[in-house]
């Protein structure tokens, strides 16, 4: 199971206003807008390196939702997007 860690952001470089998040990407110097779920995933990954399935499970508990396959799959996509933006890197 491949785990990922956040290397391109810190908690103080994230702002969540209503349901929209703005963050500064240290890796690229870019600023991104994320939705609240993506922000929650990134924050939880800042605590420790995680695999997409672990993020899905943790957030399902936090948000009191069912971790069905569609739910889990969206975190695979999210991790791919974070990777593309340079926000995370795989843990060796």
């Amino acid at each position: 199971m491949r785990r990922w860690r956040v290397t391109g952001c810190r908690p103080d470089l994230i702002r969540l206003w209503d349901d929209q998040c703005v963050l500064f990407n240290l890796s690229s110097g870019q600023t991104h807008q994320l939705n609240a779920l993506a922000e929650a995933a990134l924050r939880i990954m800042m605590q420790r390196p995680m695999a997409p399935s672990e993020i899905a499970e943790a957030l399902a508990i936090e948000l009191e939702t069912e971790a069905d396959p569609a739910w889990v799959q969206q975190f695979d996509q999210l991790i791919a997007e974070f990777d593309r933006l340079g926000l995370i890197e795989p843990v060796p």
Binding site: L13, R15, W17, D18, Q20, C21, V22, F24, L26, G29, T31, Q33
Partner: peptide, 22 residues
């Protein structure tokens, strides 16, 4: 204008935001 949108609109009107980074 919601804050995230205001941030984005101000960003579009900034001359040196990228140079200042964090």
């Amino acid at each position: 204008v919601p804050r995230a949108q205001a941030f984005a609109d101000l960003l579009a009107n900034s001359m040196n935001y990228i140079a200042l980074a964090e």
